[in-house]
Amino acid sequence: MSKVHFSVQVRLVSDLERSKRYYADVLGCDVSDVWAVRDDFALGFKLIQAAKAEDVRPNPSGDNKMVPWDTYAYVETHEELDQLYEHFKARGAQFIQEPVLEHQDWGDWKDFVLIDPDRYAIAFGSGKKGS
């Protein structure tokens, strides 16, 4: 059976050039005509210009969730998550959730959520404290 090697999310955006700048400058993606990817497609988007701004519709919050998610990406450790947060913060990211540590029965989970210019919510999380 064939194997899927990576996937990307399609983002309908209100201003393609603005989104390309954001994904490059703030998220550190390699950006081409419509592609925005980083870390060998571990985080990947295909940016498509919307015909009308009202066609852009990020996800609403889910049941029992205060913060919406359009993308959820994982990093290995809490330390890497903190470094990523500081990196995005220094590049001007707007956050709708600062880093939060939650204690679960199976261990600790930490995550934060930022938004892009069209208010797509991109979450980053980790379940390991590290070394």
Rank of each mutant, 00 (worst) to 15 (best):
R18Y: 08
L27Y: 09
V113P: 02
N64D: 05
I122L: 09
L43V: 15
F41D: 05
D25V: 12
V31N: 06
V31I: 06
V100F: 01
G130A: 06
D33C: 05
D63Y: 13
E17D: 15
R18Q: 15
Q104M: 08
A50W: 00
K129D: 00
V34C: 06
G130N: 08
F88D: 03
E76Q: 15
N64C: 08
K20I: 07
K129M: 12
G107L: 09
L12K: 06
A121G: 10
K128R: 13
M1S: 07
H87L: 10
S61A: 15
R119P: 00
A93W: 04
Q9A: 15
W109N: 08
W106S: 13
F6L: 08
E79W: 02
G92Q: 05
C29R: 01
K89R: 11
L12W: 02
A24T: 04
W106E: 07
L114C: 12
I115E: 12
S131Q: 11
W69P: 00
E98Q: 15
P117I: 01
D108M: 13
C29T: 08
D30A: 10
F124N: 01
D33Y: 04
K128P: 06
W35I: 13
A36D: 02
L16K: 04
H78A: 07
G130F: 03
E54A: 12
D116E: 11
V113K: 15
F88I: 01
V100P: 01
T71L: 11
E79I: 12
F45H: 03
G28N: 08
K129E: 02
N59R: 12
W106Y: 15
L47H: 07
P68I: 08
C29K: 04
G28V: 07
R57P: 00
H103A: 06
L12A: 03
I48M: 10
Q97E: 12
A53N: 07
L43A: 15
H5E: 11
A93C: 14
D111Y: 00
I115L: 10
G44L: 07
D25K: 06
Y85V: 01
F41H: 13
S131K: 14
K52L: 11
R57D: 00
D63G: 03
D108Q: 11
V75F: 10
R18M: 07
Q83M: 05
D111N: 01
S2G: 06
E80T: 03
L81F: 03
S2Q: 05
H5W: 02
Y23E: 01
